[in-house]
């Protein structure tokens, strides 16, 4: 998949600018996790020790840092959005130009719906490709894991072990998800052709009392789409439920051990809350990375169809 994403980034143009955006955007989640965890640790320690000064210092720092972080993230977004929109528009323009340059036999080889889907929904899939979310969550995951290891190596190991099944499940599901996404793209394209027929052939259908027949054909296509979407939803649902169960199990284990440590006086309550927050950074980060990879695979099903046209049929 890496090489296909690379070719897509090359095709979008100005990869340096995209890389800069990803770099600027990537620290957001890690910073937010650290910010919240430090605030909770500091504030709760202040409460525990009865120190007003420590509590107010934490509150003051939090109230300055959070808007600052949001402002930074918003500025990065605002400067990136026009760039990304213009890249997608340029891609669509190139794609349209390429389609216009095709021979009539090449055009006739595919249904109208297929061309229509490639020019519209497939490009929209590329538009929504979550590369920046992946960057954000990868950095967040790495930073949270690193901090957690530094705080308590043993607990970090337990957290990582409970997060691993979600990652492995994501990898197992990746292939069928990609295949189903491709099948869904084809089914949708076929239905667009049926829809064009329904509209163009409406008067003829009415003359020959064929409307019910056309609707039946449309419903048949609808059923095909529904079947694929149900399978896709089932896979994604299984992944979500699995992640949730594993996550809850992990929380229970870490909370039990951490609570015992607090009772034994080996850890403060604020420290435990911060630890739980970093644990959340690891588990949620791992889950988000898996989801982003799955979403990228789904988007690549559309990207592949766009690239196929741009490459003149060289890639698949």
């Amino acid at each position: 998949m890496k090489s296909r994403v690379e070719s897509l980034v090359r095709e979008l143009g100005r990869p340096g600018r995209l890389l800069l955006f990803l770099l600027l955007r990537s620290p957001y989640e890690a910073c937010a996790t650290i910010l919240l965890a430090s605030f909770l640790a500091g504030a709760l320690s202040g409460v525990e020790s009865g120190s007003h000064k420590a509590l107010f210092a934490s509150l003051a720092w939090f109230s300055i840092a959070v808007p600052g972080l949001y402002l930074y993230n918003g500025t990065v977004w605002a400067t990136h959005a026009p760039f990304w929109i213009s890249r997608i528009a340029a891609l669509r323009r190139r794609l349209f130009r390429r389609v216009l340059a095709l021979r009539a036999t090449d055009i006739d080889a595919r249904p109208t719906g297929d061309w229509s889907a490639r020019l519209t929904s497939d490009v929209s899939l590329i538009d929504s490709i979550p590369l920046h979310y992946l960057a954000v969550h990868v950095v967040g995951l790495v930073v949270s894991t690193g901090i957690l290891v530094r705080i308590d190596g043993f607990l970090a190991l337990i957290v990582i072990l409970t997060a691993l099944p979600a990652i492995l499940a994501g990898q197992v599901l990746a292939k069928p998800v990609r295949a189903l996404s491709g099948a869904l793209r084809t089914a949708v394209s076929d239905q667009v052709a049926e829809l064009v027929t329904l509209v163009e052939g409406g008067p003829t259908a009415r003359l020959y009392d064929a409307s019910e027949w056309l609707i039946h054909r449309f419903c048949f296509g609808n059923r095909a789409i529904r079947r694929v979407r149900m399978r896709l939803a089932l896979l994604m649902g299984l992944q979500a439920v699995g992640s949730l169960l594993v996550g809850m199990g992990g929380t229970l284990v870490v909370l039990s051990i951490g609570a015992l440590m607090v009772l034994d006086g080996r850890r403060t309550l604020g420290g435990l809350v911060a630890l739980l927050h970093y644990r959340l950074g690891v588990v949620a980060g791992a889950s988000m990375v898996v989801n982003c990879l799955l979403s990228i695979r789904i988007a690549m099903a559309g990207a592949d169809r766009v690239m196929e046209v741009l490459d003149g049929g060289k890639s698949t």
Partner: peptide
Amino acid sequence: RDNITCGH
């Protein structure tokens, strides 16, 4: 066939 019968 379907084009002639229009599904009838």
